[in-house]
Amino acid sequence: MRVKIARTIANFIWHPRWIAFSIILAAWQIVAVKRNSRVIPQPARVWNEFWDLLSNFTFVDDLWASMIRIVLGFGVAFLVGTSVGILMGSRRTWNEFLHDLVVFGLALPGLVYALIAVMLFGQALWAPVLAIVLTSYPFIAVNVREGIIALDKNLLDMAKTYRIKKRKQLLKIIIPSLLPFIFSGIRLGFSMSWKVNTLVEVFGSTNGVGWQIRASFDTYSVHGMLAWTLIFGGTMLLIEYRILTPAERYFSRWRPKIDGII
């Protein structure tokens, strides 16, 4: 047991990632010192800025403002995306009807949605919600559709011979087989929501993470932007490892264990 723990710690310390990090930090430091320009701050400066934000809790208000927008927008996008995906997966006509629309939605950059939403709704809550729904519903829809197409017809036939009621089929066969697809849809859709919400805040908002990034850009403060990016990234990691990964692990506990890929 003790040997095992020691080995885990050793593996953590002698990990090539530290080499990568050191090389990048060292190069950054050298360039920053040599150029001695405002637009390339030293790593320590960025860290101080980040630490200031964290320790004074100044980030909380902006993060909270962004969160509310994202959760609202993503909630609506999830509902829309799932319904569209189910329609596309189960009805041929609907699939043909919606296919091009979804492809077009996937291809257009979030910027377009963000700009239009800001022009239509200004600083109202509708702007980020509309932009988020338009950008992230196609991702959820495509995944749900794939899941429905991949449904094991053999299992449904089996249920039919045993005269299992539709409701039970839905709960015990259809939803469990859709879950992995829904999860990857949520992952993609949620990260899209973050990104487009930040854009909306850049162009038409007076608070939120995106607005802070915009403010840093306007004042040419690279360290400020990097600090806010760290906060952004940290929140994403927290959501990934504290919410999504545990939930997914719980729902796929029946699967054979495969060695972690990422």
Partner: peptide, 10 residues
């Protein structure tokens, strides 16, 4: 009631 055993266990 009917029961059906398939080629694969399903």
């Amino acid at each position: 009631q009917l029961a059906y055993v398939f080629q694969s266990a399903r």
